[in-house]
Write a protein that binds this DNA or RNA. Sequence first.
DNA 1: CATTTGATGTTCT
DNA 2: GAACATCAAATGC
Length: 218
Amino acid sequence: MSRDAAPRARRSRLGGPLPHAFYDRPTEIVSRELLGAVLECTTVEGVTRGVIVETEAYLGPHDPACHAVAGLTSRTAHLFGPPGRSYVYLIYGMYWCFNAVTRERGHGSAVLVRAVSPTDGLELMRRRRPKVKRDRDLTNGPGKLCLAMGIVGAMSGASLRSGPIIIRTGSAVPDADVVVTPRIGITQAAEWPLRYLVRDDPYVSPTPASFARTSYTP
DNA sequence: CATTTGATGTTCT
DNA sequence: GAACATCAAATGC
């Protein structure tokens, strides 16, 4: 058969949703493994997608920087599980931040997605963020990516397999390309190395120079 | 490039 | 009343 023969049924270029069980593991592990996965958000305006290039782990009530320390409130309800759903919260009264809930009901642990590298819906992202000059500034921060992808609080609590926000399998990022640093923008437990990012990726949010001594490769 | 500052309003003490 | 898992613009090299 010539190599120009009719191609076999086209495999979707897109990976399927990550299995629910993927999230039901330690949050540090999920944070590391979400690098390279695809974040997708669908709204009436259209679909946007991007490869996850930066995450942070928030471990639960024993983590002073985690919202779970406040206990079960109306704000944190979705943080307390079950795993495999979104937890979207408002920060500084202005910006949404997106998390993937990782642990069983009642635990209160999640991965904050801090940056993605856009793959689909770039025009829609630009339309939603008309003042942004460089594409790399569309999604290189947790509030920015929610603005560009249309992620809002109403999406909190939805399944990440079938809801408006879906996390799909992507391509694995080797350990040599992963950098671990302290988390950004917190004061409690500020030294804990729980931020994961893809080395040299232009869509990663800026890393403070002071992190040089505490950054490493897994 | 790095650092500083104002915007903005919900949440929890 | 203080804190806040941020961003964009402005300033100073």
